[in-house]
Simulated scan of single mutants.
Amino acid sequence: MTDRLLMIFVKNLIPGMVKTRLAKDIGIDKALDVYMELVNHTNKITQKIEVNKAVYYSEYVEIEDIWDTGNYELNVQKGMTLGEKMSTAFDEAFDSHNKVVIIGSDCYDLNSKIIKKAFEMLDENDLVVGPAKDGGYYLLGMSEYLPQLFQNKEYSTDSVLKELLNEAEELELSVHQLPTLSDIDTLADLKETDMDWENLGADAQIDGEEEAY
């Protein structure tokens, strides 16, 4: 066991409930295909990272899916807003861990090296953040629970990262920033990646035996 925990927030694979902004341009089914590919990618890059790992589903725990392998603790997100959900997850995580990192499942450019770097930098910093090009962040790491960083925040805006960094400065926290990457929320974001999204099959299965890697 380790004192380090990687938390992964994912959405349940419900058509029309994932990548809603993207779906307006490419349709509900194709948006679901893209999200399935993103989840597959997130699973792939986290499998061999030697820390404890926990997946937090948006609605309910999936049975026998790509995460149900015994290598990930399976949970459901608790709270009404994204801020509440992340804050609760961090609060519970620090009951048994000293270094905690959270990621989502929207960043196709994220890799194992960056996640490992985040944990390394928590040995020297209070906070580690992965800036997203849209003004948010794709990763957040803490060496202690800091609930104030999640209070009164409006997520999915271009000021999320700026507000976080300003608050960290007010609290006199040391912060390490990782490389800036792009989350996939729009068609423009998608076109900037090397994902072959147009050829993703509508009937693709998301399980460990059919990963295209």
Rank of each mutant, 00 (worst) to 15 (best):
S96F: 07
D183H: 10
Y138N: 08
L22C: 05
N40H: 00
S96Y: 01
N152W: 06
D68I: 02
D189L: 14
D3P: 01
P15S: 05
Y72A: 11
D123A: 00
Y57S: 07
A23H: 04
N152Y: 12
V55D: 08
N12Y: 03
Q77E: 10
Q151G: 03
K191A: 12
I26N: 13
E37C: 05
W67Q: 10
K44F: 07
T193V: 07
I206S: 08
K53H: 06
L38R: 01
D196P: 04
S96H: 10
E210Y: 06
K99A: 05
H97K: 00
W197S: 13
V34T: 04
D25H: 05
A212T: 08
D65H: 02
S96R: 03
W197C: 09
A204M: 09
A93V: 01
E84T: 06
K191C: 06
V51Q: 02
D189Q: 13
S143L: 02
I206D: 03
E211H: 11
L161Q: 13
M1H: 08
I26A: 14
G141W: 09
E209L: 15
I26R: 06
V76A: 01
T2L: 13
L6S: 07
L171M: 13
I102L: 10
L171N: 12
I184G: 00
L122C: 13
L140A: 05
V128I: 08
G130H: 11
D158P: 11
M17Y: 14
E92L: 13
D29F: 02
T88D: 14
L122Q: 01
Y60P: 00
I14P: 03
L139D: 09
D194Y: 05
L165Y: 09
W67K: 09
I206P: 03
L5T: 04
A132S: 15
I8Y: 11
L164S: 12
K85F: 05
L173K: 15
S112H: 08
E37L: 04
G70F: 09
E163Y: 11
G141R: 12
M195H: 07
D65N: 13
K162P: 10
E172T: 06
M142H: 11
S112P: 02
A132D: 15
V160K: 11
D3T: 07
D91F: 11
L139V: 12
F150I: 02
A93H: 05
N111P: 00
E59P: 01
L140Q: 13
G135L: 07
L190K: 05
E92Y: 02
I184E: 00
N75I: 03
G83R: 14
A93C: 09
A204K: 14
M86F: 03
L32H: 02
G136D: 11
N98I: 00
